[in-house]
Amino acid sequence: MKLFSCLLIALRWPRRVLGISKLSAFEFLKAIHPDLSNNQLLDLLREQNKDLDEILAEHHRQLACERDLTRVLRNLDVGYRIIKRIGDANRCVNWADLVIAIGGDGTFLLASKLITNNEKPMFGINPHPGTSNGFTMPMESSADIGRIFEKLRTGDYSLLMRSRIRTIMTGEGLYRQPFHVHEKSRTRGERRIDALMRSTQRKIADALQPRQRILPWLALNEVFMAEFFASRPITLTIQADNEETFTTKSSGICVCTGSGSRSWFRTMNLQTVETVQTLAAMATGKQLDEKETDELLQKYHNNLLFPPEALRMAYMIYEMYRSSRCPKSIPERQMCHKVKIKSRGFDAGLVLDGCVSLPFNDGSTATFDIRPEYSLKNIILP
């Protein structure tokens, strides 16, 4: 991983710090049941057979980290705001000199969506070490927050300009309120007349909106396009850079950055020990032992990764349907600087970094590119 060295003057001592904190599972439960007391909430968790000890431990670790951060900032005479709701944080980003994500990988990704330029620095503090989902974003430990700011004060850090993907979409429904994937609602239980009325109202509203939009969210990790029903394939037309356009049917497509190449993109491409040994035996007639197989797998998986600051992206067609009529030359995976994708989806979505989602149905197109000005300034401490 290439790091860009910097002097203290490159990052002035922050006078205003914005902390974007994860909402713990217990706080989320309180938010959706505001009329219940803490004891009643605990009884509810017991009824649901939840791991009560782990939920409370996570909650207390999160609160302890927030308290430690505010104590350090107060002692340093640095202005601060600790925000738990993204809608509130959105109004505070311009105010802050430094943004800190307090949580895991998901919190870091959500917080990065609020920074729309390559000038505002950001880093993450993880109150729950060992609970990362595999997204290899370096997170600082909450064990000694004072040490973190001492390193910032002395200039003992580096900057990594992590590339991000800009998305330009054409189609309908581009200005609807985006939703989280787990909040995707259906018309189950809704009267047909009500569903038709709501659909008509939405179509009228869409007709009055522009049919092209530069999305305000830059993808730090990846953009994924597919049908919301996992069992339904999607047909997509793809053009990478200035190459020939091709059409394919699959379970979806993932377009990722160098940061994202260490996450879902890598998982999509993982191979098993059994597959490697079978292919090697068929190709060479030799049965690889465990050590040889591990070395070959490690080499293959490392080859999937590329630098987080690289000004290029990779796409991966997920579970591509191949038939006798399908051209064998269609690349399942490819590096590129720009890619354009047209949807023939029925109830499809475009999802940025696993959170923000918009409709991506028949006729909609999305164009992705990477430029230096889209990068995220990520502080890296030794």
Rank of each mutant, 00 (worst) to 15 (best):
P34G: 07
N49H: 12
S24E: 10
D51P: 03
L44A: 07
P14T: 13
N75P: 02
L45D: 00
N38P: 01
E27D: 10
D51Q: 04
K22S: 11
L45F: 04
E58Y: 11
D35P: 01
I9T: 12
C6A: 15
H60K: 08
C6G: 12
Q62M: 07
V17W: 00
S21G: 06
L18R: 01
D77I: 00
L44V: 05
Q48M: 10
L23E: 09
H59S: 06
L7E: 15
L7V: 08
R74P: 02
D35H: 15
E47Y: 07
K50H: 11
R12P: 10
R46E: 12
F28Y: 12
L11E: 14
L18H: 02
N75C: 11
S24F: 03
L36Y: 07
A10L: 12
E47Q: 15
L73Y: 00
E47I: 07
N39A: 10
W13I: 07
L42V: 15
N49I: 06
F28T: 09
E27L: 10
K30T: 05
L42T: 14
A57R: 09
I9G: 06
Q48N: 12
F28A: 10
Q40Y: 06
L36A: 03
R74Y: 03
D68H: 10
L36V: 00
D35W: 11
L45S: 00
K22M: 05
E27Y: 11
L69Y: 02
R15K: 15
D68W: 04
D51Y: 09
Q40D: 04
I32G: 05
L69W: 03
Q62E: 14
L7R: 09
Q62I: 12
S24C: 01
D53K: 09
I55V: 15
I55L: 08
F26W: 13
H59R: 03
I55E: 04
S37H: 00
L8K: 15
R71A: 10
R46P: 02
I9R: 14
R12A: 13
L41F: 04
L42C: 04
E66H: 04
E47W: 08
E54A: 13
S37I: 08
I32F: 00
C6L: 09
L45K: 03
R67H: 08
D43S: 14
R12L: 13
A64P: 03
L45N: 04
P14C: 06
C6P: 04
T70H: 01
D68C: 07
I55Y: 04
D77E: 13
Q48T: 10
A10S: 14
I32N: 06
L45W: 07
H60S: 12
L69K: 02
A57H: 14
E54F: 12
L63C: 06
R16W: 01
R74W: 06
A25S: 13
L8H: 12
E58V: 14
H60V: 11
P34A: 02
